[in-house]
Nucleic acid binder design. Structure first.
Lengths: 206, 206
DNA sequence: CCCTTAATGCAAATATTTTGCGTTAACAAA
DNA sequence: TTTGTTAACGCAAAATATTTGCATTAAGGG
Protein backbone atom coordinates (compact mmCIF):
# COMPACT_ATOMS: atom_id res chain seq x y z
CA UNK A 1 0.00 0.00 0.00
CA UNK A 2 1.25 3.36 -0.98
CA UNK A 3 1.47 6.11 1.57
CA UNK A 4 2.28 9.15 -0.52
CA UNK A 5 1.29 9.94 -4.07
CA UNK A 6 4.93 10.22 -5.05
CA UNK A 7 4.61 7.68 -7.80
CA UNK A 8 1.12 8.58 -8.84
CA UNK A 9 0.69 9.63 -12.40
CA UNK A 10 -1.41 12.60 -13.36
CA UNK A 11 -4.59 12.64 -11.34
CA UNK A 12 -7.43 14.58 -12.86
CA UNK A 13 -10.57 15.60 -11.10
CA UNK A 14 -12.37 18.45 -9.48
CA UNK A 15 -10.57 20.61 -6.97
CA UNK A 16 -11.02 19.93 -3.31
CA UNK A 17 -11.95 23.13 -1.64
CA UNK A 18 -9.61 22.96 1.27
CA UNK A 19 -9.10 25.99 3.44
CA UNK A 20 -5.58 26.08 4.81
CA UNK A 21 -6.52 27.93 7.97
CA UNK A 22 -10.08 28.26 9.17
CA UNK A 23 -9.35 31.12 11.54
CA UNK A 24 -7.99 33.23 8.70
CA UNK A 25 -10.82 33.12 6.23
CA UNK A 26 -10.49 36.71 5.16
CA UNK A 27 -9.46 37.92 1.78
CA UNK A 28 -8.71 34.69 0.01
CA UNK A 29 -10.96 33.45 -2.70
CA UNK A 30 -11.39 29.73 -2.65
CA UNK A 31 -14.39 29.54 -4.92
CA UNK A 32 -14.87 27.81 -8.22
CA UNK A 33 -12.72 29.55 -10.75
CA UNK A 34 -9.72 30.13 -8.57
CA UNK A 35 -9.64 26.54 -7.38
CA UNK A 36 -10.22 25.28 -10.88
CA UNK A 37 -7.23 27.19 -12.15
CA UNK A 38 -5.03 26.01 -9.32
CA UNK A 39 -6.00 22.46 -10.08
CA UNK A 40 -5.38 22.90 -13.79
CA UNK A 41 -1.95 24.39 -13.17
CA UNK A 42 -1.00 21.67 -10.72
CA UNK A 43 -2.13 19.01 -13.16
CA UNK A 44 -0.17 20.66 -15.92
CA UNK A 45 2.99 20.65 -13.83
CA UNK A 46 2.58 16.97 -13.04
CA UNK A 47 1.90 16.11 -16.63
CA UNK A 48 4.93 18.00 -17.92
CA UNK A 49 7.01 16.64 -15.08
CA UNK A 50 6.36 13.13 -16.29
CA UNK A 51 7.51 13.87 -19.82
CA UNK A 52 10.37 16.33 -19.54
CA UNK A 53 13.23 16.71 -17.15
CA UNK A 54 12.93 19.20 -14.36
CA UNK A 55 14.99 22.09 -15.62
CA UNK A 56 13.41 22.28 -19.03
CA UNK A 57 9.95 22.96 -17.71
CA UNK A 58 8.96 26.57 -18.20
CA UNK A 59 6.16 28.73 -16.92
CA UNK A 60 4.79 29.47 -20.40
CA UNK A 61 4.70 25.72 -21.09
CA UNK A 62 2.75 25.08 -17.93
CA UNK A 63 0.42 27.95 -18.70
CA UNK A 64 -0.28 26.63 -22.18
CA UNK A 65 -0.89 23.12 -20.87
CA UNK A 66 -3.22 24.42 -18.18
CA UNK A 67 -5.02 26.78 -20.51
CA UNK A 68 -4.24 29.91 -18.55
CA UNK A 69 -2.11 32.99 -19.11
CA UNK A 70 1.46 32.99 -17.88
CA UNK A 71 0.82 36.19 -15.97
CA UNK A 72 -1.73 34.36 -13.86
CA UNK A 73 0.93 31.91 -12.74
CA UNK A 74 3.47 34.62 -12.06
CA UNK A 75 0.98 36.58 -10.01
CA UNK A 76 -0.27 33.62 -7.96
CA UNK A 77 2.99 31.80 -7.38
CA UNK A 78 5.70 34.36 -8.01
CA UNK A 79 8.09 32.17 -9.92
CA UNK A 80 8.64 28.67 -11.19
CA UNK A 81 10.41 27.29 -8.14
CA UNK A 82 7.62 28.45 -5.85
CA UNK A 83 5.10 26.71 -8.05
CA UNK A 84 7.14 23.53 -8.19
CA UNK A 85 7.47 23.58 -4.42
CA UNK A 86 3.74 24.05 -4.05
CA UNK A 87 3.03 21.11 -6.32
CA UNK A 88 5.68 19.03 -4.59
CA UNK A 89 4.11 19.55 -1.18
CA UNK A 90 0.77 18.41 -2.55
CA UNK A 91 2.36 15.32 -4.00
CA UNK A 92 4.12 14.57 -0.75
CA UNK A 93 0.91 14.99 1.21
CA UNK A 94 -0.18 11.62 2.60
CA UNK A 95 -3.05 9.91 0.84
CA UNK A 96 -3.30 7.02 3.25
CA UNK A 97 -2.32 5.97 6.74
CA UNK A 98 0.62 3.65 7.28
CA UNK A 99 -0.16 -0.05 6.95
CA UNK A 100 -1.44 -1.77 10.08
CA UNK A 101 0.73 -4.82 10.60
CA UNK A 102 -0.64 -5.67 14.02
CA UNK A 103 2.31 -4.46 16.09
CA UNK A 104 4.00 -1.13 16.58
CA UNK A 105 7.39 -2.48 15.61
CA UNK A 106 5.99 -3.99 12.45
CA UNK A 107 4.20 -0.77 11.62
CA UNK A 108 7.33 1.28 12.08
CA UNK A 109 9.51 -1.09 10.07
CA UNK A 110 7.03 -1.21 7.23
CA UNK A 111 6.59 2.54 7.22
CA UNK A 112 10.30 3.29 7.23
CA UNK A 113 11.05 0.87 4.45
CA UNK A 114 8.39 2.40 2.29
CA UNK A 115 9.36 5.93 3.25
CA UNK A 116 12.96 5.32 2.23
CA UNK A 117 11.92 3.73 -1.00
CA UNK A 118 9.63 6.57 -1.99
CA UNK A 119 11.92 9.37 -0.91
CA UNK A 120 15.03 7.99 -2.55
CA UNK A 121 13.26 7.28 -5.82
CA UNK A 122 14.00 9.73 -8.63
CA UNK A 123 10.57 11.26 -8.25
CA UNK A 124 10.74 11.51 -4.49
CA UNK A 125 14.19 13.03 -4.59
CA UNK A 126 13.10 15.61 -7.14
CA UNK A 127 10.11 16.53 -5.00
CA UNK A 128 12.26 16.97 -1.91
CA UNK A 129 14.60 19.19 -3.87
CA UNK A 130 11.72 21.26 -5.15
CA UNK A 131 10.47 21.74 -1.63
CA UNK A 132 13.89 22.70 -0.28
CA UNK A 133 14.64 25.07 -3.14
CA UNK A 134 12.16 27.68 -1.98
CA UNK A 135 13.35 30.42 0.32
CA UNK A 136 9.91 31.29 1.53
CA UNK A 137 7.20 29.85 3.72
CA UNK A 138 7.20 26.64 5.68
CA UNK A 139 6.91 24.12 2.90
CA UNK A 140 9.78 22.03 4.21
CA UNK A 141 8.17 22.18 7.63
CA UNK A 142 4.92 20.91 6.18
CA UNK A 143 6.66 17.89 4.68
CA UNK A 144 8.37 17.10 7.95
CA UNK A 145 4.92 17.42 9.49
CA UNK A 146 3.56 14.70 7.22
CA UNK A 147 6.19 12.29 8.46
CA UNK A 148 5.49 13.31 12.03
CA UNK A 149 1.77 12.73 11.50
CA UNK A 150 2.38 9.23 10.24
CA UNK A 151 4.55 8.36 13.18
CA UNK A 152 1.89 9.77 15.48
CA UNK A 153 -0.72 7.61 13.80
CA UNK A 154 1.37 4.53 14.36
CA UNK A 155 1.82 5.50 17.98
CA UNK A 156 -1.87 6.14 18.53
CA UNK A 157 -2.71 2.78 17.05
CA UNK A 158 -0.16 1.18 19.32
CA UNK A 159 -1.61 2.85 22.38
CA UNK A 160 -5.05 1.55 21.42
CA UNK A 161 -3.52 -1.91 21.35
CA UNK A 162 -1.99 -1.38 24.75
CA UNK A 163 1.54 -1.23 23.37
CA UNK A 164 4.20 1.19 24.52
CA UNK A 165 4.66 4.05 22.03
CA UNK A 166 8.08 5.10 20.80
CA UNK A 167 9.64 8.53 21.06
CA UNK A 168 8.78 10.28 17.81
CA UNK A 169 11.69 12.71 17.98
CA UNK A 170 14.06 9.83 18.41
CA UNK A 171 12.72 8.12 15.31
CA UNK A 172 12.98 11.32 13.34
CA UNK A 173 16.52 12.03 14.50
CA UNK A 174 17.94 8.55 14.20
CA UNK A 175 15.92 6.83 11.50
CA UNK A 176 14.30 9.40 9.24
CA UNK A 177 17.10 11.97 9.29
CA UNK A 178 19.88 9.56 8.26
CA UNK A 179 17.75 8.28 5.39
CA UNK A 180 17.02 11.78 4.18
CA UNK A 181 20.61 12.92 4.63
CA UNK A 182 22.00 10.06 2.59
CA UNK A 183 19.34 10.50 -0.05
CA UNK A 184 20.07 14.18 -0.47
CA UNK A 185 23.84 14.17 -0.15
CA UNK A 186 24.95 10.87 -1.59
CA UNK A 187 24.13 9.46 -4.99
CA UNK A 188 23.17 6.03 -3.81
CA UNK A 189 19.80 5.09 -2.38
CA UNK A 190 19.66 3.78 1.19
CA UNK A 191 19.12 0.03 1.07
CA UNK A 192 16.42 -1.87 2.90
CA UNK A 193 19.10 -3.49 5.03
CA UNK A 194 20.42 -0.10 6.01
CA UNK A 195 16.95 1.05 7.01
CA UNK A 196 16.40 -2.08 9.09
CA UNK A 197 19.66 -1.42 10.84
CA UNK A 198 18.51 2.08 11.73
CA UNK A 199 15.24 0.82 13.16
CA UNK A 200 17.20 -1.73 15.15
CA UNK A 201 18.35 1.18 17.26
CA UNK A 202 14.75 1.77 18.29
CA UNK A 203 13.82 -1.90 18.50
CA UNK A 204 17.00 -3.90 19.15
CA UNK A 205 17.06 -7.41 17.72
CA UNK A 206 16.60 -9.89 20.54
CA UNK B 1 38.38 29.08 15.02
CA UNK B 2 36.31 28.94 11.94
CA UNK B 3 36.20 25.77 9.92
CA UNK B 4 34.33 26.83 6.81
CA UNK B 5 34.27 30.17 5.08
CA UNK B 6 30.52 30.32 5.48
CA UNK B 7 30.58 33.69 7.16
CA UNK B 8 33.46 35.10 5.22
CA UNK B 9 32.82 38.29 3.42
CA UNK B 10 34.03 38.85 -0.11
CA UNK B 11 37.53 37.57 -0.54
CA UNK B 12 39.47 39.09 -3.36
CA UNK B 13 42.68 37.81 -4.75
CA UNK B 14 44.23 35.91 -7.58
CA UNK B 15 42.77 32.62 -8.66
CA UNK B 16 44.19 29.42 -7.34
CA UNK B 17 44.91 27.13 -10.21
CA UNK B 18 43.41 23.99 -8.87
CA UNK B 19 42.86 21.02 -11.10
CA UNK B 20 39.74 19.12 -10.12
CA UNK B 21 40.93 15.80 -11.49
CA UNK B 22 44.51 15.16 -12.41
CA UNK B 23 43.79 12.06 -14.43
CA UNK B 24 41.49 13.96 -16.75
CA UNK B 25 43.65 16.83 -17.84
CA UNK B 26 42.48 16.85 -21.41
CA UNK B 27 40.51 19.58 -23.05
CA UNK B 28 39.96 21.89 -20.12
CA UNK B 29 41.66 25.22 -19.99
CA UNK B 30 42.74 26.19 -16.56
CA UNK B 31 45.09 28.95 -17.50
CA UNK B 32 45.08 32.62 -16.67
CA UNK B 33 42.08 34.13 -18.33
CA UNK B 34 39.69 31.31 -17.70
CA UNK B 35 40.60 31.13 -14.03
CA UNK B 36 40.53 34.89 -13.71
CA UNK B 37 36.99 35.01 -15.04
CA UNK B 38 35.86 32.21 -12.80
CA UNK B 39 37.27 34.03 -9.83
CA UNK B 40 35.67 37.32 -10.88
CA UNK B 41 32.29 35.67 -11.30
CA UNK B 42 32.53 33.87 -7.99
CA UNK B 43 33.50 37.09 -6.25
CA UNK B 44 30.63 38.91 -7.91
CA UNK B 45 28.16 36.31 -6.69
CA UNK B 46 29.47 36.58 -3.15
CA UNK B 47 29.35 40.33 -3.23
CA UNK B 48 25.80 40.47 -4.55
CA UNK B 49 24.80 37.73 -2.16
CA UNK B 50 25.77 39.90 0.75
CA UNK B 51 23.68 42.84 -0.40
CA UNK B 52 20.55 41.39 -1.96
CA UNK B 53 18.33 38.47 -1.11
CA UNK B 54 18.82 35.23 -2.97
CA UNK B 55 16.00 35.28 -5.46
CA UNK B 56 16.63 38.76 -6.75
CA UNK B 57 20.13 38.01 -7.96
CA UNK B 58 20.25 37.71 -11.73
CA UNK B 59 22.83 36.50 -14.20
CA UNK B 60 23.11 39.88 -15.96
CA UNK B 61 23.75 41.50 -12.57
CA UNK B 62 26.50 39.06 -11.78
CA UNK B 63 27.97 39.52 -15.23
CA UNK B 64 28.04 43.30 -14.86
CA UNK B 65 29.61 43.09 -11.43
CA UNK B 66 32.23 40.66 -12.67
CA UNK B 67 32.92 42.61 -15.83
CA UNK B 68 32.04 39.78 -18.20
CA UNK B 69 29.30 39.12 -20.71
CA UNK B 70 26.22 37.25 -19.55
CA UNK B 71 26.69 34.76 -22.36
CA UNK B 72 29.97 33.71 -20.83
CA UNK B 73 28.22 32.76 -17.63
CA UNK B 74 25.46 30.92 -19.45
CA UNK B 75 27.96 28.97 -21.50
CA UNK B 76 30.19 28.04 -18.59
CA UNK B 77 27.62 27.31 -15.91
CA UNK B 78 24.40 26.74 -17.80
CA UNK B 79 22.07 28.62 -15.52
CA UNK B 80 21.93 30.63 -12.34
CA UNK B 81 21.26 27.76 -9.99
CA UNK B 82 24.25 25.81 -11.28
CA UNK B 83 26.44 28.85 -10.71
CA UNK B 84 25.07 29.40 -7.23
CA UNK B 85 25.67 25.77 -6.42
CA UNK B 86 29.23 26.02 -7.69
CA UNK B 87 29.91 29.06 -5.55
CA UNK B 88 28.21 27.46 -2.58
CA UNK B 89 30.44 24.39 -2.75
CA UNK B 90 33.50 26.64 -2.75
CA UNK B 91 32.23 28.51 0.26
CA UNK B 92 31.49 25.29 2.08
CA UNK B 93 34.93 23.94 1.31
CA UNK B 94 36.96 23.73 4.52
CA UNK B 95 39.59 26.39 5.08
CA UNK B 96 40.99 24.89 8.26
CA UNK B 97 41.09 21.69 10.23
CA UNK B 98 38.87 21.21 13.25
CA UNK B 99 40.24 22.63 16.51
CA UNK B 100 42.55 20.37 18.47
CA UNK B 101 41.19 20.25 21.99
CA UNK B 102 43.48 17.48 23.16
CA UNK B 103 40.98 14.64 23.16
CA UNK B 104 38.86 12.99 20.55
CA UNK B 105 35.65 13.59 22.44
CA UNK B 106 36.49 17.26 22.85
CA UNK B 107 37.39 17.55 19.21
CA UNK B 108 34.13 15.98 18.12
CA UNK B 109 32.02 18.05 20.48
CA UNK B 110 33.69 21.26 19.39
CA UNK B 111 33.41 20.38 15.73
CA UNK B 112 29.73 19.46 15.93
CA UNK B 113 28.80 22.57 17.82
CA UNK B 114 30.51 24.72 15.26
CA UNK B 115 29.14 22.72 12.37
CA UNK B 116 25.59 23.13 13.64
CA UNK B 117 26.10 26.81 14.19
CA UNK B 118 27.48 27.45 10.74
CA UNK B 119 25.04 25.26 8.86
CA UNK B 120 21.95 26.56 10.58
CA UNK B 121 22.94 30.19 10.16
CA UNK B 122 21.08 32.08 7.43
CA UNK B 123 24.16 32.00 5.23
CA UNK B 124 24.87 28.32 5.81
CA UNK B 125 21.28 27.36 5.19
CA UNK B 126 21.20 29.32 1.95
CA UNK B 127 24.39 27.63 0.79
CA UNK B 128 23.03 24.19 1.56
CA UNK B 129 19.87 25.01 -0.39
CA UNK B 130 21.91 26.25 -3.32
CA UNK B 131 23.87 23.02 -3.35
CA UNK B 132 20.77 20.84 -3.12
CA UNK B 133 18.92 22.79 -5.78
CA UNK B 134 21.06 21.49 -8.63
CA UNK B 135 19.96 18.37 -10.43
CA UNK B 136 23.35 17.70 -11.88
CA UNK B 137 26.76 16.51 -10.71
CA UNK B 138 27.81 15.47 -7.27
CA UNK B 139 27.93 18.81 -5.53
CA UNK B 140 25.91 17.56 -2.57
CA UNK B 141 28.26 14.61 -2.38
CA UNK B 142 31.24 16.92 -2.28
CA UNK B 143 29.80 18.79 0.67
CA UNK B 144 29.11 15.58 2.54
CA UNK B 145 32.71 14.69 1.72
CA UNK B 146 33.98 17.81 3.47
CA UNK B 147 32.25 16.76 6.66
CA UNK B 148 33.58 13.27 6.28
CA UNK B 149 37.09 14.63 5.81
CA UNK B 150 36.88 16.61 9.01
CA UNK B 151 35.71 13.64 10.97
CA UNK B 152 38.53 11.60 9.48
CA UNK B 153 41.02 14.27 10.53
CA UNK B 154 39.73 14.15 14.07
CA UNK B 155 40.01 10.38 14.00
CA UNK B 156 43.56 10.41 12.65
CA UNK B 157 44.63 12.84 15.31
CA UNK B 158 43.05 10.61 17.93
CA UNK B 159 44.86 7.57 16.62
CA UNK B 160 48.14 9.49 16.82
CA UNK B 161 47.34 10.15 20.46
CA UNK B 162 46.61 6.49 21.03
CA UNK B 163 42.90 7.08 21.46
CA UNK B 164 40.20 4.84 20.07
CA UNK B 165 38.60 6.36 16.93
CA UNK B 166 34.84 6.60 16.54
CA UNK B 167 32.76 5.16 13.72
CA UNK B 168 32.44 7.93 11.16
CA UNK B 169 29.26 6.57 9.61
CA UNK B 170 27.66 6.46 13.00
CA UNK B 171 28.51 10.10 13.65
CA UNK B 172 27.16 11.08 10.27
CA UNK B 173 23.94 9.13 10.71
CA UNK B 174 23.18 10.03 14.30
CA UNK B 175 24.77 13.43 14.85
CA UNK B 176 25.27 15.20 11.54
CA UNK B 177 22.13 13.95 9.81
CA UNK B 178 19.70 15.00 12.56
CA UNK B 179 21.25 18.46 12.65
CA UNK B 180 20.97 18.86 8.90
CA UNK B 181 17.47 17.43 8.79
CA UNK B 182 16.19 19.84 11.43
CA UNK B 183 17.98 22.74 9.81
CA UNK B 184 16.48 22.04 6.41
CA UNK B 185 12.98 21.02 7.40
CA UNK B 186 12.21 23.02 10.49
CA UNK B 187 12.43 26.75 10.90
CA UNK B 188 14.27 26.70 14.18
CA UNK B 189 18.00 26.23 14.55
CA UNK B 190 19.26 23.23 16.50
CA UNK B 191 20.44 24.43 19.90
CA UNK B 192 23.84 23.72 21.42
CA UNK B 193 22.13 21.59 24.05
CA UNK B 194 20.47 19.53 21.35
CA UNK B 195 23.80 18.97 19.64
CA UNK B 196 25.43 17.91 22.89
CA UNK B 197 22.61 15.45 23.42
CA UNK B 198 23.29 13.94 20.02
CA UNK B 199 26.99 13.53 20.72
CA UNK B 200 26.09 11.95 24.04
CA UNK B 201 24.96 8.97 22.01
CA UNK B 202 28.52 8.54 20.79
CA UNK B 203 30.15 9.47 24.09
CA UNK B 204 27.66 8.77 26.89
CA UNK B 205 27.91 10.98 29.94
CA UNK B 206 29.42 9.01 32.77
C1' DC C 1 -30.02 41.49 -7.26
C1' DC C 2 -26.35 44.71 -6.76
C1' DC C 3 -21.83 46.11 -5.00
C1' DT C 4 -17.13 45.55 -4.03
C1' DT C 5 -12.93 43.75 -5.23
C1' DA C 6 -9.76 39.62 -5.83
C1' DA C 7 -8.38 37.13 -9.64
C1' DT C 8 -7.88 36.66 -14.36
C1' DG C 9 -6.92 37.70 -19.51
C1' DC C 10 -4.71 40.43 -22.79
C1' DA C 11 -1.05 42.96 -24.71
C1' DA C 12 2.73 46.12 -24.40
C1' DA C 13 7.03 46.88 -22.11
C1' DT C 14 11.01 45.01 -20.04
C1' DA C 15 14.33 41.61 -18.89
C1' DT C 16 16.35 37.27 -19.68
C1' DT C 17 18.42 33.63 -22.20
C1' DT C 18 20.06 31.66 -26.47
C1' DT C 19 22.72 31.65 -30.69
C1' DG C 20 25.86 32.80 -34.63
C1' DC C 21 30.11 34.57 -35.65
C1' DG C 22 34.41 36.99 -35.25
C1' DT C 23 38.26 37.50 -31.86
C1' DT C 24 41.30 36.37 -28.06
C1' DA C 25 44.40 33.65 -25.67
C1' DA C 26 45.79 28.87 -23.61
C1' DC C 27 48.27 25.04 -24.64
C1' DA C 28 51.08 22.03 -27.47
C1' DA C 29 54.60 21.31 -30.67
C1' DA C 30 58.17 22.71 -33.33
C1' DT D 1 60.66 31.77 -29.16
C1' DT D 2 57.44 31.13 -32.65
C1' DT D 3 53.47 28.93 -34.73
C1' DG D 4 49.20 26.31 -35.09
C1' DT D 5 45.03 24.66 -33.08
C1' DT D 6 41.00 25.38 -30.73
C1' DA D 7 38.54 26.29 -26.18
C1' DA D 8 36.70 30.22 -24.23
C1' DC D 9 35.25 34.75 -24.72
C1' DG D 10 32.83 39.26 -26.42
C1' DC D 11 29.40 41.23 -29.09
C1' DA D 12 24.98 41.79 -30.97
C1' DA D 13 20.79 39.95 -32.87
C1' DA D 14 17.11 36.76 -32.09
C1' DA D 15 14.23 34.14 -29.26
C1' DT D 16 12.04 33.54 -24.69
C1' DA D 17 10.59 34.67 -20.50
C1' DT D 18 8.91 37.96 -17.02
C1' DT D 19 6.65 42.14 -15.52
C1' DT D 20 3.09 45.60 -15.66
C1' DG D 21 -1.07 48.49 -16.83
C1' DC D 22 -5.65 48.17 -17.76
C1' DA D 23 -10.08 46.09 -18.92
C1' DT D 24 -12.98 42.20 -17.71
C1' DT D 25 -14.78 38.38 -15.06
C1' DA D 26 -16.73 36.27 -11.20
C1' DA D 27 -16.66 35.28 -5.80
C1' DG D 28 -18.59 36.52 -1.70
C1' DG D 29 -21.24 39.82 1.03
C1' DG D 30 -25.04 42.88 1.77
Amino acid sequence: MQIFCVNKSVRLGMPRLQETDVTVKERVRIGGRSARIQQAVHDAVRKLDAFSTRNQITVPQIAAEAGVTPSTIYRRWGDLSALLADVAVERLRPIADPDDTGSIEGDLRAFIEQYAEEMSSPVGLALMRDVLATTGQGQPGACAGFTCDHLTTINERAKARGEQPFDIDEVIDHVVAPIVYRTLFSDEMPTAAYCRQLVDRIYPKT
